[in-house]
C-alpha cells in the first residue's frame, strides 16, 4: 500500500473509533491511539521525511487535511459528550412547583386608599391628617353640628376616659376644621383615616372603619366643580362605566348637601338600581366663619366616603370584619 492509501485506511479506522466513543475518557483514549506521540497517525506523519522530494508535498498536504478532519471529528464528539455529561441522569420535571420566595401583599384597604389618594393627588390634592382622639369642638361644634344633633348622641360616639371629655372622631371632617384654622385658603386636601362609631360589629359594621374626606376651598368654587371632581375620581376608582347621581340631602356642615349614589354593572348584578356611596356638599358659610374664612370671598366643597365600602364593592367582599381579621388567605388575594 502506498502511503496515501495507508493514510486513508488509518483515517477510516480512526473516525469509526472516535465516533463510537460513549464517554469522554474513551474519546481521549481513542484520540491518543491515533494522534498521540505513539499514535498510528503520528507514525505516518513521521514517515513523511523519508519520502522522495517530488511526492513529499502531495503526501504532506494529504496528511494535514486528514489531521484536520480527525481533529474536527474529535472536537465535535467532545462537544456532544460534554453536553451529555452535563445533563442530569433523569430529565427535570418542569411541572414540579418552584422554590417560592414570599411576596408580601399590602392590605386591601391600603391598596384602595392608595388608589384614591393617587386619583386626588393627580388633581392637585394633598394628603392631610389629624388626631383620632378629638374634642367636641373640632368634631361637632365647628362643623355646625348643634348639641342636639343626632350625630352627637352618645349612642354613636365613643368617649375616652380622660379629662376634658375627649372622644374618638366619628368622621374625618374634624380635620377640615384643624387645617382651615391653621392655613389660609386656597385648600385642596384629602384625609384618609380611621373613624369610630358605636356600632356593634356585623357583616356591614365595624366600630372602627376608614373614611376619606375631601375639602376644596377657593374663589368661585361651584357645585359643578364638586360634581366634576367627584365624577372624575369615581370613574377612576370604579371604572368608566360608573354612573353617579347627586341627590339633595342634609349635613349640618354643608349647604347645599348632597348624597352620591352610583351604579354600574356590579350594582345591577346586586339587583339594585343605585348604591349610596358618599355624602358631600358646599361648605356651609357658618363653617367658614367658624374658622375665620370670609364666606363672601371663599367657597368650597367637601365630601366623605367609607373606604371599606369602596373596597367591598371593588373586590366583591361581603363581610367588613374580614378586613380586621387579617386571615393570611384573605390578605394574599389582593
Amino acid at each position: 500500500m502506498s502511503l496515501l492509501e495507508r493514510i486513508e485506511s488509518v483515517k477510516q479506522a480512526a473516525l469509526i473509533e472516535l465516533r463510537a466513543a460513549q464517554e469522554l475518557p474513551s474519546l481521549e483514549r481513542a484520540k491518543g491511539s491515533y494522534l498521540g506521540g505513539e499514535g498510528q497517525f503520528t507514525a505516518l506523519m513521521k514517515e513523511l521525511g523519508s519520502l522522495a522530494k517530488d511526492v513529499r508535498p502531495i503526501a504532506g498536504k494529504a496528511i494535514n487535511a486528514v489531521k484536520q478532519e480527525l481533529e474536527a471529528a474529535i472536537a465535535e464528539k467532545r462537544a456532544e459528550l460534554e453536553l451529555r455529561a452535563a445533563l442530569p441522569k433523569e430529565p427535570t420535571d418542569f411541572t414540579l412547583p418552584g422554590r417560592r420566595r414570599s411576596l408580601g401583599k399590602l392590605h386591601p384597604l391600603t391598596q384602595v386608599t392608595d388608589d384614591i389618594v393617587k386619583a386626588f393627588r393627580r388633581l392637585g390634592f394633598v394628603v392631610a391628617d389629624g388626631p383620632e382622639i378629638e374634642d367636641e369642638y373640632h368634631c361637632f361644634d365647628a362643623l355646625n353640628t348643634p348639641a342636639d344633633h343626632p350625630a352627637r348622641d352618645s349612642q354613636d360616639t365613643f368617649f375616652v376616659d380622660a379629662p376634658g371629655k375627649p372622644l374618638l372622631r366619628t368622621h374625618t371632617s374634624s380635620v377640615q376644621i384643624r387645617v382651615m384654622k391653621s392655613q389660609p385658603p386656597p385648600i385642596r386636601l384629602i384625609v384618609p383615616g380611621r373613624v369610630y362609631r358605636r356600632d356593634n360589629a356585623d357583616a356591614t359594621h365595624n366600630p372602627t372603619f376608614n373614611q376619606i374626606e375631601g375639602l376644596y376651598v377657593d374663589r368661585n368654587v361651584t357645585v359643578g366643580d364638586l360634581k366634576g371632581t367627584v365624577e372624575a375620581v369615581f370613574k377612576e376608582l370604579l371604572g368608566n362605566d360608573v354612573k353617579l347621581r347627586f341627590r339633595p340631602h342634609y349635613f349640618s356642615y354643608t349647604e347645599p348637601s348632597l348624597e352620591i349614589d352610583f351604579t354600574n354593572a356590579l350594582v345591577k348584578k346586586l339587583g339594585k338600581d343605585w348604591l349610596e356611596i358618599a355624602g358631600c356638599g358646599m361648605v356651609h358659610p357658618q363653617v367658614f366663619e367658624n374658622v375665620g374664612y370670609d364666606p363672601e370671598v371663599w367657597s368650597g366643597w367637601a365630601f366623605g366616603f367609607g373606604i371599606e365600602r369602596i373596597a367591598m364593592l371593588r373586590y366583591g367582599i361581603t363581610d367588613i370584619r374580614l378586613f380586621y381579621e387579617n386571615d393570611v388567605r384573605f390578605l394574599k388575594q389582593f
Binding site: 391600603t110 366600630p207 387579617n326
Partner: peptide, 21 residues
C-alpha cells in the same frame, strides 16, 4: 408610610390592619 410598606412587603410580609379598640 408607603415606602415602609413597600420595604416590608418586599421582604415577604403581608400587611395587616387590626382593631384599634
Amino acid at each position: 408610610f408607603a415606602e415602609v410598606r413597600r420595604i416590608l412587603s418586599g421582604l415577604g410580609l403581608n400587611e395587616a390592619q387590626s382593631q384599634t379598640l
